[in-house]
Design a protein around this nucleic acid. Structure first.
Lengths: 204, 204
DNA sequence: TATGGTAGAGAACGAACGTTCTGCTGTCAA
DNA sequence: TTGACAGCAGAACGTTCGTTCTCTACCATA
């Protein structure tokens, strides 16, 4: 069953091993070191062979070079594979074995680092929207939002996470939990940002 | 209101500017280049001054050096700030203005890249656990799990996401939706991995 | 007017780096 | 049994890198 295999350079099992070592190194150090250091990482003694390996990994699309010759990782380098028809959170169904798209972790967050902030959620007023206490809300800072968006609004100088709604020409903030009341701001409504993502960590 | 400001080297506004440039560069190239290249990035002409800047950023904890002298980013380099008492997904409460912990995006995923995979969730059998159709399950591949863990199990050669339970000495798979039946595997239960994280993207 | 700190410029130098080239194994098919 | 190729080792070399050191321009303060 190879559905979940990490993408590898085709037709070269050794290179896949070197790629894994490079990925693990990068995960720890967040950079690609010199050929001399890579000799240790790969467990070989020859700088020229390191270069040959990196050239092949480059050709396979896992790394590339900056204009001044430095090796840097590509999106494919960070990819984690998808099973196309995925986990069925219902009754089990067949999983097709073709690899689909890749999901790149930094896609969501690193794109606009200066506009993105992360905020831990407290309370359960949005629980019916699948947003739990302790979840991390990924928020893009901007003051425009559409009705139906989940927004971080500033109400009475405090932050709150709610769905933006409209009622009789006025904006309102709707919780996703019937135990909580709808917020009807007196005066104008200040939007801090819009929810663009959600992250949850389960204790290991 | 400065609750959400990006962390900066204290007492040096210029360094904060250089840090931002370095962060933007890193976001694009995923590496820290040579001093000569950093001259262009920073817009200055002197390598020695670049070194002085990096030394200060290093002292401030945003970058550090590998054993062989290479500059690499630290956790703080990637940090997005937190408001300490966070978004209240209930009634708004006061947000204290002190900066708390930082959340680093790749913390959850890049740690053990060779063991981690991401799987899109289909269906709503785990909806009471806040896991929706279309969410991305972050799964650590291993075949040991504890009762109570949410696991990706292989049942009849198919993958399914359920809570691991025990009933009369036998392992069972419990959905988080009363409309779905408990799965009682005949024979042994094969665990593919354990859910360690969840990612949801909202359409922009 | 003198002083001291900040923000850089620029040269010099040895060490490290990437590149290229040649050579050496083991393996496997012809 | 030969030869071809994959998988390295190791030396040589010119370039680039990081480091250190000296010097300068520009404030602000005393």
């Amino acid at each position: 069953m190879t559905v979940f295999d990490t993408p590898t350079p085709e037709s070269n099992p050794k290179d896949a091993e070197y790629l894994a070592k490079l990925q693990d190194y990068y995960a720890e150090w967040k950079s690609i070191p010199s050929y001399a250091s890579l000799c240790e990482v790969f467990g070989i003694a020859s700088k020229s062979w390191v270069k040959a390996i990196l050239d092949r990994l480059g050709k396979a699309g896992f790394i590339e070079r900056t204009p001044d010759g430095m090796w840097i990782p590509t999106r494919q380098f960070f990819a984690r594979p998808f099973a196309e028809s995925s986990v069925q959170a219902g009754m089990p169904v067949s999983v097709t074995a073709t690899q689909g798209d890749y999901f790149v972790i930094d896609e969501m967050l690193i794109d606009t680092p200066s506009l993105t902030t992360m905020i831990p959620v407290k309370g359960d007023s949005m629980i019916d929207a699948g947003i739990h206490d302790g979840d991390i809300a990924v928020v893009e800072k901007r003051n425009l939002a559409n009705v139906g968006d989940i927004v971080v609004a500033i109400v009475d100088n405090d932050f709150t996470l709610k769905t933006l709604g409209k009622e009789g020409g006025k904006f309102i903030l709707r919780p996703a939990n019937s135990a909580y009341p709808v917020i009807r701001p007196h005066g104008s409504l200040e939007i801090f940002g819009v929810l663009v993502g959600l992250i949850r960590k389960y204790r290991k």
